[in-house]
Design a protein around this nucleic acid. Structure first.
Length: 629
DNA sequence: CTCTTACGCCC
DNA sequence: GTACGGGCGTAAGAGA
């Protein structure tokens, strides 16, 4: 579809690809996509050099997200109906076709059908409706977003190419290691399962059927620690009175649902066992004990303290869950999704994992990551060991230090807090709210102050702060937390002034704007979220800008270094050793901003030489350059 | 097969 | 008197 109203539908052929190439080479053209990243990726797979496009590429998905982050849907269909008053059939013809042909198609071709398998007429009709909508949506969104958030949109637009490049690069994985870890995790998982079966035996399980409760006997061999219902049966059989229920959970739309079932999460389990075992659960989690140590320790405590035979149930269930998760979420996934797999001369099987990064999913402006999610890899347990550094490269982790807390200082403009952020903000706040000199602050006091700092950043109230602390093993009453919060606000009055100011802006305009021009439309009832949106979102936009800067710089000098992943305030770049000396300090400077804000925004640098780890290499000193090459 | 619920990991 | 922010993925269960 063009501005002149011409439209058409093309099949993928060498000729049409050439046509696309010519279009991309024309600096006078503006080419619009809804979710351009997807199309750019497709084109790059077809051999088109998307990083050298002369035309101006726009994305209506990104535009719509910037226009308003709170819309119930960002599908072309919804946006068109809502903003363009376009009409459409109630049903999605292609979706219907896919659904009704799934079985028969899979039987014939051995895979489920996709878009391009649908009848040409259906596909063409839908495609034309889509491109027409996209162009009209562009006419609506572009001027509005350019008025409100011009430079931000330009960053997001450049960022699309960075993301495609990053995803196409992928990360190298050590499949041999993943298989070893999976084997070991399965071994312990099965051993623990056997222990649990022996401990629990046959149980009676309550199931629901059409609103009625039905009792079913479950053979000991069929016991499943992953089932809440089975756990209820097991606890009853072993004579452990059930005490704790799940609480309603907040859903994405802000409403609450769920809750009321018997809870078996870690905190509940800790409260079901005696003190020594609870200690083991906590300590093993904090220090990342190996499974065998945990296992032996549980039984040793049982002996030593002469505890009841049923006591290992909760810790073993926790460990079973953890190991199951490791196997299914991480090891299985890595092993089955690695591509370009080959065996290195040293006998190790390695491959590449191409995960995806979504630059316009999170409301605040942050990236999200999926398939697999690289942003929630456990920090202490096995999975990170599976990610390795490419031969002839080292991975440099550049991370913004305390960046959200720094923007918090920036917005609140509290001089004392700004001074403390570069040292130890939690200790400083502890000293202020406890009225104790900084060198006399205890670990507990600092921990509570830290919880308050983050709690206030996240919009929590005293009760929630008390609850969080208690769950984390530092019992705190509501009154205690309320007192500390009150002292906090008395000592740092600018925080309340700031939130009040945000609330006023919200009432006046319906949104609040961050320093990069990103607007946060927030329901008036949820004003407590704004402070967090501002801190989290400003950090995110700074990172996005940095990624574009870094990527452009690397290209401009023809560097072989590549951006691998981003984890919110951290950027991982793989660099050939010969470039390190000049590049690392340069990237650090590119990312840092020591002047624009109330406090200097600085970047910490760490290097990983073999595996994915933030641990510094003790043989490398950035300042002296010792250890290079 | 799809939805909800519970759980748990990350910043 | 209110109320911790932002994500993703898995398994189990229930209803269709």
């Amino acid at each position: 579809m063009t501005d002149a109203g011409e439209y058409g539908f093309m099949l993928k052929t060498p000729e049409t690809l050439q046509w696309i190439q010519r279009l991309f080479n024309d600096p006078d053209k503006v080419v619009v996509f809804h979710n351009a990243k997807f199309d750019l990726k497709m084109f790059s797979f077809e051999g088109i050099d998307i990083f050298d496009i002369k035309a101006h590429i726009d994305c209506t998905l990104i535009l719509s997200k910037l226009y308003n982050m709170l819309l119930p849907s960002y599908k072309l269909r919804w946006l068109s109906i809502h903003f363009l008053n376009r009409t459409t059939e109630d049903k999605d013809e292609i979706e219907i076709w896919l659904k009704s042909h799934r079985r028969e198609f899979s039987a014939e071709y051995g895979r489920p059908p996709n878009f391009s398998d649908a009848p040409l007429r259906t596909v063409a009709r839908r495609a034309i409706w889509d491109v027409t909508s996209t162009l009209l949506l562009h006419r609506f969104m572009k001027p509005r977003v350019m008025r409100a958030s011009r430079s931000l949109y330009m960053t997001e637009r450049d960022l699309m190419f960075v993301v495609v490049d990053m995803e196409n690069t992928g990360v190298e994985v050590d499949i041999t290691r993943a298989k070893q870890l999976r084997k070991s995790a399965k071994k312990y998982r099965d051993q623990i399962l056997q222990d649990l079966k022996d401990l629990v035996g046959d149980i009676v399980v309550e199931k629901k059927k059409k609103g009625e409760r039905i009792k079913v006997e479950v053979d000991g061999e069929k016991f499943n620690p992953g089932s809440g219902q089975h756990l209820v049966g097991a606890f009853r059989k072993l004579g452990i009175p059930l005490k704790f229920k799940t609480k309603p959970k907040k859903k994405k739309d802000g409403t609450y649902s769920g809750g009321g079932n018997w809870a078996f999460d870690e905190y509940a389990m800790i409260r079901y066992v005696s003190k020594p075992l609870a200690g083991i659960i906590r300590e093993s989690g904090e220090d990342g004990w190996p499974t065998d140590k945990f296992y032996e320790e549980v039984y040793e405590i049982l002996q030593r303290e002469g505890l009841s035979k049923r006591e290992p149930l909760p810790p073993l269930v926790l460990k079973y869950r953890e190991l199951s998760k490791m196997v299914s979420t991480y090891y299985d996934y890595i092993i089955s999704h690695a591509v370009d797999v080959y065996t290195r001369p040293d006998g190790r099987e390695v491959g590449v994992l191409h995960c995806s990064f979504n630059q316009s999913e999170a409301k605040t402006g942050r990236f999200s990551s999926s398939s697999p999610n690289m942003q929630n890899m456990p920090r202490i347990l096995g999975p990170r060991e599976c990610f390795i550094v490419r031969r002839g490269r080292r991975n440099w982790h550049l991370d913004y230090e305390q960046v959200e807390m720094k923007f918090f200082c920036h917005f609140s403009e509290d001089d004392d807090m700004a001074d403390a952020i570069e040292d130890d903000i939690h200790e400083f706040v502890a000293s202020e709210i406890y009225g104790v000199p900084r060198d006399q602050i205890t670990k507990e006091q600092r921990k509570r102050a830290k919880a308050i700092n983050f709690g206030i950043l996240y919009g929590a109230g005293p009760n929630k702060i008390a609850e969080t602390l208690t769950e984390r093993g530092l019992p705190t009453t509501n009154a205690e937390a309320a007192l500390l919060c009150a002292r906090y606000h008395k000592r740092f009055p600018s925080i309340r002034r700031l939130t009040a100011q945000y609330e006023r802006q919200l009432i006046k305009d319906g949104y609040v704007t961050n320093p990069f021009g990103r607007r946060y439309h927030v329901p008036k009832k949820q004003g407590y979220k704004i402070l967090n949106y501002m801190c989290q979102g400003t950090s995110a936009d700074l990172m996005k800008l940095s990624m574009v800067k870094v990527w452009k710089y690397l290209r401009s000098i023809g560097s072989a270094a590549r951006i691998l992943i981003t984890v919110h305030d951290e950027l991982v770049v793989e660099i050939p050793p010969c470039e390190e000396v000049s590049l690392v300090p340069k990237l650090k400077r590119l990312m840092e901003d020591r002047n624009s804000y109330y406090v200097p925004i600085t970047v910490g640098v760490e290097v990983a030489t073999k595996r994915w780890s933030k641990k510094s290499d003790p043989h490398f000193d950035l300042k002296t350059g010792a250890g290079l090459n």
